[in-house]
């Protein structure tokens, strides 16, 4: 997860993540560089600290950050779309049940 010294505008916490976190305010339409070969075009404006989809995330599948599931998509989320409480539900009960 170590980032390079190059100035990035968004950060992926683990390689298996399907969301990216903005580390500055980003306007809709911006083409954000994720890595040398990966780019995502933003469909929504993304504020500092907020997340957008790195890939298409189908309804009912997990949102993955830090290499771990953090929630479940409540609608089909397209790449570059804002990922937050309007399209994600918490999975805290599921995670705790699986821990036993």
């Amino acid at each position: 997860m170590e980032r390079s010294m190059a100035v990035e505008r968004a950060v992926v916490m683990a390689c298996e993540d399907n969301v990216v976190t903005a580390i500055c305010d980003l306007p809709a339409g911006e083409m954000v560089r994720i890595s040398e070969e990966e780019r995502v075009e933003l469909r929504d404006p993304i504020a500092f600290g907020h997340k957008f989809a790195r890939t298409a995330i189908p309804k009912g599948t997990y949102i993955v950050k830090y290499g771990a599931r953090i929630g479940r998509a409540t609608s089909n989320i397209r790449p570059g779309e804002h990922v937050h409480i309007h399209n994600v539900q918490d999975i805290v009960d599921e995670v705790r049940r699986d821990a036993r």
Binding site: A47, K51, A68, I70, G71, I85, V88, D90, V92
Partner: peptide, 24 residues
């Protein structure tokens, strides 16, 4: 616990779920 967590301030700053907050 989930009614109060994540807090409105957490959500405003981009934290979506309690799991995400906890992992951070």
């Amino acid at each position: 616990l989930r009614e109060a967590n994540p807090t409105p301030g957490n959500i405003e700053r981009g934290l979506t779920t309690l799991v995400e907050k906890s992992l951070g």
